[in-house]
Design a protein around this nucleic acid. Sequence first.
DNA 1: CCCTTAAGGCAAATATTTTGCGTTAAGGGG
DNA 2: CCCCTTAACGCAAAATATTTGCCTTAAGGG
Lengths: 196, 196
Amino acid sequence: MIEKSKNTDRSTEVVPRPGGRSARIQAAVIQAVEELKQNQDPSELTVPAIADRAGVTPSTIYRRWGTLNELLAEVAARNMRPDAPPQDTGDWRNDLAVWLHEFVEEMSSEPGRVMLREVLGGERPDNAGQCSSFTRQQLDTILARVNNDEERPPATDDLLDQVIAPVMYRILFTNAPPERDYTQKLIDKALGVNST
Amino acid sequence: MIEKSKNTDRSTEVVPRPGGRSARIQAAVIQAVEELKQNQDPSELTVPAIADRAGVTPSTIYRRWGTLNELLAEVAARNMRPDAPPQDTGDWRNDLAVWLHEFVEEMSSEPGRVMLREVLGGERPDNAGQCSSFTRQQLDTILARVNNDEERPPATDDLLDQVIAPVMYRILFTNAPPERDYTQKLIDKALGVNST
DNA sequence: CCCTTAAGGCAAATATTTTGCGTTAAGGGG
DNA sequence: CCCCTTAACGCAAAATATTTGCCTTAAGGG
């Protein structure tokens, strides 16, 4: 008997389908994770518990995300998405300072550090990449407010190197979260302010 | 009957004992982890497997480290300890460049990224702190070679902020590991080299 | 409307983590 | 030097979590 028409030998790669049942389940799972994270006691944040609350079987979660770490990484990355563009005070330098101080405070907080740990703990680099992408977008938004005729704004990359990176390094690798003064000095230096 | 002499009501806090049986077991477990990490297929890197190889019961590991993540974080932090001081070429600027390029290459490599993930994935901040402590020591060693009569070396903190941090940020949060040119420019800028 | 296929549910099989309890060895005091 | 106390370990049973095989479901495409 001839094997029934194998259509798999075509280069017709199986294209992943967008939206639909999968999407609803994914949303339910993610929401379940966020809800369970409200309850203190992180030991309740387990795959079976998440599955239960999402109305899904554990195997669904394991098959889609592989491990709890990956699921948490994805959720954390999502939650890092800013819910608003940086405040517009009319002075972009001020916007930058205001936004940055808030950014640092959020990242240094316990929930912030937990999110960072989760994002960086995942194996897929996408999630971490998304975080810096969000940050970059916020910076771009602020820099777009500069009147280019009057002054030349710093490049986004320079701000990432000279301000964001040092702040993140301290949060991730030292016990001393960045003080407000320290952060401000980084800004001033990056913007070329003379404070000798 | 009088409860037999309770000597626990004294302020004689029970002091954790250094070295001894515990120390040997700890060493055996850590070595087991390192050996198992040689074998590709990280799915073999499991607590029962580690316990087996270390000649220990799993419960010992769970009680001491809590989770696999914590154990891996500790081992990774240990392995980040440099095994030699930075090469001494006679020119500290060169020493810095040589050391840094090697540092970046190690951290960007797949094993390096895995170690970073493990270190940052643990809950105890000590391990990450130790990493930056190692880095700081290496930098200090290089800077100590500067002849202070002739030139003023940069501060270690400035190097951390302006060179190490940007490099680490890119490794952790972007898909593009730092190119050699990029790293060199960071050094030049931090050392005040005019390259306009 | 039917066909194909990726994804989900269910439940059994595995693997892991946790826990209670008895044992061991390191230190300290008499 | 011996005993006493205690933290840490081993062992094994119990509790959880993870993996897997097989069947069912629903989204898209022809």
